[in-house]
């Protein structure tokens, strides 16, 4: 188990490094950072000064090593636009994104798992068909459009919820639904498929033969086994969702890290974008890592080898 954990950890670090190399070179090769920094009215002299000041004339690997060294010490440089340290800028915004991510994954789990279970218990019933419809529709629904439709319905027509901002918990309701709906279809399908398989297992018949009631069989004996892959999927989805929160935060003007990313990209604020790409990929890597651990912990066949 320890060897397994260490190996996974090493791989995770290697993946993170590779992502950072790729994104660094992508950003620095695709445009002139000095031009981005100087603004539109800069003279060639300004550009040269900036290039020298920030060291953009150095070879790219040197710039990368420099950036990485600082990043490892928690220093992601200065934001070109806000003129503030990128690390504190992101730290301020991260709590909003994390809150949104946690709410969204909880929303997805608490709706998709019961639906999936119900669908598996009565295949081809109304519930099963509704669940299937919701999941097919969910996969086809553009999340930004879904968000706008919710705003029209709940903010403009019914005046129930605030359309934008992040001041109160009400502000998080619609973003949670939109972001959570993105993860629902996959979780539901996996729950349904897992439950269908488990419900046909011999040990379910054993549980019935013991005299266990339907609810006990379903939740204690079946769901406990079917939920293992769902938990790891949810962890992976959480990683994807934090990366995808940029769209949702943009629609609802939720000032989290995703919104910051959108702003920074529009303003060609390279240090901030660079740091955000790294942080979002770290999220994904951490969550997949956690998902592996959760899997091992939940399944005695892996835990107690």
């Amino acid at each position: 188990m320890l060897a397994f954990t260490l190996k996974r950890l090493g791989l995770a670090v290697l993946v993170t490094l590779t992502v950072s190399v790729i994104s660094f070179s992508l950003l620095h090769l695709s445009g002139n950072p000095a031009a981005a920094l100087a603004g539109e009215n800069a003279t060639p002299a300004d550009l040269e000064a900036i290039t020298r000041q920030y060291g953009f004339d150095r070879p790219l690997p040197v710039q990368y090593a420099d950036w990485l060294w600082n990043a490892l010490h928690g220093d992601f440089g200065q934001s070109y636009y806000f003129k503030l340290p990128v690390s504190s800028l992101i730290a301020d915004r991260l709590s909003v994104t994390m809150t949104l991510g946690v709410c969204a994954i909880c929303f997805a789990l608490f709706t998709a798992v019961p639906l999936g279970v119900a669908a598996a218990v009565r295949p081809n019933s109304i519930i099963d068909r509704t669940a299937l419809f919701l999941s097919v529709a969910g996969q086809a629904m553009p999340s930004f459009w879904f968000g706008l439709v919710l705003i029209v319905l709940f903010s403009i027509k019914m005046r129930l919820l605030p359309p934008s901002g992040s001041a109160s918990w009400q502000h998080f309701i619609m973003p949670t639904i939109v972001l959570g709906y993105y993860a629902m279809p996959a979780i539901m399908r996996l729950t349904r498929a897992g439950m269908m398989e488990v419900l046909n297992a011999d040990y379910i018949r054993t549980a019935h033969a013991k005299g266990a009631g339907a609810g006990r069989v379903l939740f204690k004996h079946a769901l406990r086994n079917a939920i293992v892959p769902v938990v790891s999927l949810a962890a992976v989805q959480m990683g994807f969702m934090l990366g995808g929160s940029i769209v949702v935060e943009a629609i609802f003007a939720l000032h989290g890290a995703g919104y910051l990313a959108w702003e920074s990209i529009s303003r060609h604020d390279l240090p901030t974008v660079q740091a955000l790409i790294l942080i979002f990929s770290c999220f994904y890597i951490v969550f997949t890592f956690l998902s592996d651990l959760a899997n091992a912990w939940l399944d005695p066949r892996i835990r107690v080898g």
Partner: peptide, 25 residues
């Protein structure tokens, strides 16, 4: 019927490998 099952009448199945729940001791 459920109250009888496992109490006054019990059953042993063919497949011992898969008839026990893998998640519990």
């Amino acid at each position: 019927m459920r109250a009888l099952r496992g109490d006054r009448m019990a059953m042993i199945f063919q497949e011992p490998m898969t008839s026990l729940n893998p998640a519990y001791t």
